[in-house]
Nucleic acid binder design. Structure first.
Length: 876
RNA sequence: GGGCGUGUAGCUCAGUGGUAGAGCAGCGCCUUUACACGGCGCUGGUCGGCGGUUCGAACCCGUCCACGCCCACCA
C-alpha cells in the first residue's frame, strides 16, 4: 500500500483501492527512493552466492551539477542494473565522483578570482583545503540529483578518487609501474598551457583551424641566403638550425655550412633531414627544438642545442629588445624588426592552420621543453588492444572498435605530471641533488636527510583509470574485489573512449594480472537539443534535468532518454518529448486505476485457457511475445527499441484495445469478468515489471498497489511463458479491422462519436462472438422492430447495416468510396502486373508470390465490396 | 591528409532485398462513467542526385553533392 492510495469505502477482500485521477510524480518519487535505500535494496553483498553483475558509475566531476548527459547515462545504467537485480543477480552499481584535477582547480580559481585573489595568495595547503570544501558542497548536490533520478546505487560504497583508499591504489600502481620501468622521467617537448601553467597530455589538446599569417623570412646573405616560412615568428629567437631535405638539389651546396640568424647575431647550421617536405614552401624549415615537437626531433637527430626563449607564461626571456613581450606581441615586433632589415621577402599572407588549444581554458598551447613524468604505454596499449582484438572485451556498437584500435595502436607515451595543486601528489621523493630516492607508498613516510616530495600532481585520468578495481578495495584483496571484478559492462559516452576507457583497459589488465576490467563496453551518444545541436551553457540550450523532473517527473525524463537511446548515436531531446513521456506515465497510471476499479487481480492461478475469451488469449499471447522481445533488446542495449516496444504494447494494444474490448465483459460481471480480471491483472503485473527498470517510480506505486507485495524493485523479472495463440491474434486483428472500418465510416459521415445508431451486424464465424464489444466500441444499438437500413457497410466477410435516419452524407460517402475504389484498383493493377511477369514468377520466393496473390485477392474483394457499397447508397 | 558515420513525412528518428513507419507537430470531430496528460478519424514522403546489379532497391555496387564526428608532428 502506498501513502496516496486508500481502500475503497466499499471494502471487502477484493476491494478496489482508489488512486488519484492523475499521476503526480512529486508526491511519490522522493518517498519511494528513500524507502528503497532504507530497505537496502541497492546494497551489494560480496558474500552472496548469486552471480554478480557490476557496473561502475563513470564518476562525475565534482565541478558542479549533473546535466542531461549524466541523466541519460544514469538512465541506461540504472535500467540495466534494475533488470539484472530482478533477474536474481547480486547487483552492484558502484557510485562515486572524480576529483577532476585541472577542471576543479580551474573552477575554484575562478571563484577566488571573483574575490580578487589567486591560489598563490592562499598558498598550496589553504587552496587545497578550499577545493575540498568545494567538493563537499558540489558532491552533495550531485548525490541529491542522483536520488531524484532514482539511481539505484549502493551508497554504502560511495567512493571519491582522492579518498584514502584510492590514494593508496594510485601510489601502489605508480610504484609498480616505476619498478617495471613503465614510468619514467624525461625532458621532452610537452603541451604547455600558459594560462593553467601546467603540462597537459596529447588528448587534452583540442586542435582547430585558426587564421594565422605566414611570413617568409630570409636568413643569411647573398649566395647563402635561404628563405623560411613561419606562422610563429617569435620562435625564431630560439632557432638553432635550418633544415632542408637531403635530396633537395637546390640546397645541397649549403648543407653543412652556417648562416646568420637575423636579429640575434648568432650563426646556425644548415642540416639535411628527411622530415622536411621539399614540395612545401621553399623547402627549407627553421628549426626551434625547444618550442616545436618536430623541431625537437630534428634537433635530436642532429645534436642541436635546445634554446628556450619563453618562460611558462609565454613571455620572451631572451635579453634584448623583445624581452618581456608575450608571444603575440613579440610576433608582430619581430616581424616589424625583420621588415626594417629587409628580411621579409614575401608579405604576410593569411594562412589557416591547425592550432592546439587547452581543452580546459581554450588558451593556445605553447609547445615547451620540460621535465615531466611519463607512462611508457607501448606494452600496456598492446595488451589493451589485444583484449578487444581477441574478443575478451566487446565494444558495443562494434563500429567504435576501429576508433579504439586506431588510438591504442598509435599511442605516444603519456605525460602524467601536472603542475597543479589539486590532485594526487606524485609519490616520488628526491634527494638533495635532485635524484630520485624513494617512490611509492612502501617506504612512507620517507625520512631521508634533505628529501623533498615532487610538487606536481598526477593527471586526473591516472586515478580514474583505476576506478573498476580501486573502488573495490585494491590493492587489498577484498571480498568485494573477488566478487565484483571484473565489472560486467562499462556504460559511458564515446567521447571518453580514449581519455578513460582505454586507460582503464591498460591499467586493469596490468594491475589485475591480465584480467580486463569489464567484458563489454557499451558506448552511448551525446545528448543534444531537439534540433540535434550540442547542448552547451554558452549556447543557451543546456537544460538542467531537475527542471524537467520537477515539471514532468523523473520517470518522464528517464523514459524520454531511454526512448532516444540508440547505441553509440547522439540522442536529441526536447521538452515536448518529455511532456509526451509524462503523458505516458499518466496513461499507465490511469489504465491501472481502471483495472483496479474493475476487478483486475493477481490472486490465484491464471484461469484455464478454455475459459478465456479470444481477447484474453490474444493479449496474453502478445504479452509473452513482448517479454521475449524486450529481453532480447536489453541484451543488445537497444533502449530506444525496447522503450518503443513497451510504449506501443502498453498504450495501443493493452490500454486501447484490450481494455476497450473487455469493458463489456467487465461490466457484465460473472465468470467472464472474473477470468478477464485475472488476465488483466496478469498483464499489468508483467507489464509493470517490464517497465520498471526504465520508469521505476510510477511502476513501483502501481505494482505494489496491484499486488500488495513489498516492492517491484525486488520482484522477479518476467519470463516468457511460451504461450502463443496465433488463432486468437488473427481473430482480434479481424475485430480491429471491423471496428476501424466502421469508425472511419462514422467519422466520414460526421456522426458524433457518442451518437447511438441502430444497426444489424452480420459478422462471419469467429467474429460473431465479439458482437457485444464491437457494438459497445462503435455505439451501435440493437436494431428494434421496424429497423430499416439506410447504409450497409460490408466488412471483413460480413456486413454492418445501420439506420442513419437520414443523417448520412451521401455525397461525402460517394466521394470517399470512389477514392477507395481507385486505390484498390491501382493495387490490383500492380499485383497483376507482377504476377504476369514470368521472370518474377520464376525467381521470386514462394512466400512473396503468395503474399502478392493475397494482395490481389484482397484488392478484388475490396473492389467488389466497395462497388456494392456504392450501389447501396441512397440516390442523392 | 587519413578513418568512421549520416542524408527517409514540417521536426527528431526507426526501418539492410519483397505493398514506405513511429513520436511530436498539423487538420477535423467528440466532456462516450480510467485518463482532455484523453478518444476517434485524417493530411503529409520523387527514402540527397545520377548510374548500375536484380523479377524486384530506402536497403547491395559505383559515382557525385551536402553535413557530422574522430585521428594526424601541414613549417
Amino acid at each position: 500500500m502506498t501513502d496516496n492510495s486508500q481502500r475503497s469505502p466499499h471494502g471487502g477482500p477484493n476491494s478496489t483501492p482508489e488512486l488519484p485521477t492523475a499521476y503526480v510524480p512529486a508526491e511519490v518519487e522522493g518517498k519511494l527512493y528513500e524507502r528503497w535505500v532504507e530497505r537496502g535494496y541497492f546494497e551489494a553483498d560480496a558474500k552472496s552466492d548469486k552471480p554478480p553483475y557490476t557496473i561502475v558509475i563513470p564518476p562525475p566531476n565534482v565541478t558542479g551539477s549533473l546535466h542531461l548527459g549524466h541523466a541519460f547515462e544514469h538512465t541506461i545504467i540504472d535500467s540495466l542494473t534494475r533488470r539484472k537485480r530482478m533477474q536474481g543477480y547480486e547487483t552492484l552499481w558502484q557510485p562515486g565522483m572524480d576529483h577532476a584535477g585541472i577542471a576543479t582547480q580551474n573552477v575554484v580559481e575562478r571563484e577566488l578570482a571573483k574575490e580578487g585573489k589567486s591560489r598563490h595568495d592562499l598558498g598550496r595547503e589553504a587552496f587545497v583545503e578550499k577545493v575540498w570544501q568545494w567538493k563537499e558542497e558540489s558532491g552533495g548536490q550531485i548525490s541529491g540529483q542522483m536520488r531524484r533520478l532514482g539511481d539505484g546505487v549502493d551508497w554504502s560504497r560511495e567512493r571519491f578518487t582522492m579518498d584514502e583508499g584510492l590514494s593508496q591504489s594510485v601510489q601502489t600502481i605508480f610504484k609498480k609501474l616505476y619498478d617495471d620501468e613503465l614510468i619514467y622521467r624525461a625532458e621532452r617537448i610537452i603541451n604547455w598551457c600558459p594560462r593553467c601553467l601546467t603540462a597537459i597530455s596529447d588528448i587534452e589538446v583540442e586542435y582547430q583551424d585558426d587564421d594565422g599569417e605566414l611570413v617568409s623570412i630570409r636568413y643569411g646573405e647573398g649566395d647563402n641566403a635561404i628563405v623560411v616560412a613561419t606562422t610563429r615568428a617569435e620562435t625564431m629567437l630560439g632557432d638553432t638550425a635550418v633544415a632542408v631535405h637531403p635530396d633537395d638539389e637546390r640546397y645541397a651546396h649549403l648543407v653543412g655550412t652556417e648562416i646568420e640568424l637575423p636579429l640575434t647575431g648568432r650563426r646556425i647550421p644548415i642540416v639535411a633531414d628527411e622530415h622536411v617536405d621539399p614540395e612545401f614552401g621553399t623547402g627549407a624549415v627553421k628549426v626551434t627544438p625547444a618550442h616545436d615537437p618536430n623541431d625537437f626531433e630534428i634537433g635530436r637527430r642532429h645534436d642541436l642545442p635546445n634554446l628556450s626563449v619563453m618562460n611558462e607564461r609565454a613571455i620572451i626571456t631572451v635579453p634584448g629588445p623583445f624581452e618581456g613581450l608575450d608571444r603575440l606581441e613579440a610576433r608582430s615586433a619581430i616581424v616589424a624588426a625583420l621588415r626594417a632589415e629587409g628580411r621579409i621577402v614575401a608579405e604576410k599572407r593569411p594562412y589557416s592552420h591547425s592550432v592546439g588549444h587547452c581543452s580546459r581554458c581554450k588558451t593556445t598551447i605553447e609547445p615547451r621543453l620540460s621535465l615531466q613524468w611519463w607512462v611508457k604505454v607501448g606494452p600496456l596499449a598492446q595488451a589493451a588492444g589485444d583484449a578487444v582484438r581477441d574478443g575478451r572485451v566487446k565494444i558495443h556498437p562494434k563500429e567504435m572498435e576501429s576508433r579504439y584500435f586506431s588510438w591504442v595502436d598509435n599511442l605516444h607515451d603519456w605525460c602524467i605530471s601536472r603542475q597543479l595543486w589539486w590532485g594526487h601528489r606524485i609519490p616520488v621523493w628526491y634527494g638533495p641533488a635532485g635524484e630520485v630516492v624513494c617512490v611509492g607508498p612502501d617506504e612512507l613516510p620517507p625520512t631521508g636527510e634533505g628529501w623533498t616530495q615532487d610538487t606536481d600532481v598526477l593527471d586526473t585520468w591516472f586515478s580514474s583509470g583505476l576506478w573498476p578495481f580501486s573502488t573495490l578495495g585494491w590493492p587489498e584483496q577484498t571480498e568485494s574485489l573477488e566478487k565484483f571484478y571484473p565489472n560486467s559492462v562499462l556504460v559511458t559516452g564515446y567521447d571518453i573512449l580514449f581519455f578513460w576507457v582505454a586507460r582503464m583497459m591498460m591499467f586493469g589488465l596490468y594491475a589485475m594480472d591480465g584480467t580486463p576490467p569489464f567484458h563489454t563496453i557499451a558506448l552511448h551518444g551525446m545528448v543534444r537539443d531537439q534540433f540535434g545541436k550540442k547542448m552547451s551553457k554558452s549556447f543557451g540550450n543546456a537544460v538542467n534535468p531537475l527542471e524537467w523532473m520537477d515539471k514532468y517527473g523523473s520517470d518522464a525524463v528517464r523514459f524520454t532518454l531511454a526512448r532516444g537511446a540508440n547505441p553509440g548515436v547522439d540522442v536529441p531531446i526536447g521538452e515536448d518529448w518529455v511532456q509526451a513521456s509524462g503523458k505516458f506515465t499518466n496513461k499507465i497510471w490511469n489504465a491501472t486505476r481502471f483495472a483496479l476499479m474493475n476487478g483486475a487481480t493477481v490472486e490465484g492461478e491464471l484461469p484455464p485457457v478454455e475459459e478465456m475469451s479470444a481477447t484474453d488469449r490474444w493479449v496474453l499471447s502478445r504479452l509473452n511475445a513482448v517479454v521475449a522481445e524486450v529481453d532480447a533488446l536489453y541484451e543488445d542495449y537497444q533502449f530506444s527499441k525496447l522503450s518503443e516496444a513497451l510504449y506501443h504494447f502498453a498504450w495501443d494494444e493493452v490500454f486501447d484495445w484490450y481494455v476497450e474490448l473487455s469493458k463489456t465483459t467487465f461490466f457484465a460481471g460473472g465468470r467472464g469478468a472474473e477470468v478477464s480480471g485475472r488476465v488483466l491483472g496478469e498483464v499489468l503485473d508483467v507489464l509493470l515489471r517490464l517497465l520498471h527498470p526504465v520508469v521505476p517510480f510510477v511502476t513501483e506505486t502501481l505494482w505494489t498497489t496491484l499486488t500488495g507485495a513489498e516492492s517491484v524493485v525486488v520482484a522477479d523479472w518476467p519470463k516468457d511463458s511460451g504461450f502463443r495463440d496465433a488463432a486468437a491474434e488473427k481473430e482480434i486483428a479481424g475485430v480491429q479491422q471491423v471496428v476501424t472500418e466502421v469508425r472511419r465510416f462514422r467519422a466520414d459521415q460526421g456522426l458524433q462519436p457518442g451518437q447511438k445508431v441502430p444497426a444489424q451486424l452480420t459478422l462471419p464465424g469467429a467474429l460473431a462472438a465479439h458482437e457485444a464489444p464491437i457494438r459497445q466500441l462503435l455505439r451501435l444499438q440493437p436494431a428494434g422492430a421496424g429497423f430499416s437500413a439506410t447504409a450497409t457497410l460490408p466488412v471483413a466477410g460480413g456486413t454492418v447495416a445501420m439506420d442513419l435516419s437520414g443523417t448520412i452524407d451521401v455525397e461525402a460517402e460517394r466521394k470517399r468510396l470512389t477514392k477507395d475504389i481507385g486505390l484498390a484498383e491501382k493495387e490490383k493493377a500492380q499485383a497483376l502486373g507482377k504476377l504476369g511477369n514470368e521472370a518474377f514468377l520464376a525467381k521470386a520466393p514462394e512466400h512473396v508470390v503468395d503474399k502478392l496473390r493475397t494482395r490481389l485477392a484482397t484488392a478484388e474483394a475490396d473492389i467488389a465490396r466497395i462497388t456494392a457499397q456504392l450501389d447501396g447508397l441512397p440516390q442523392g
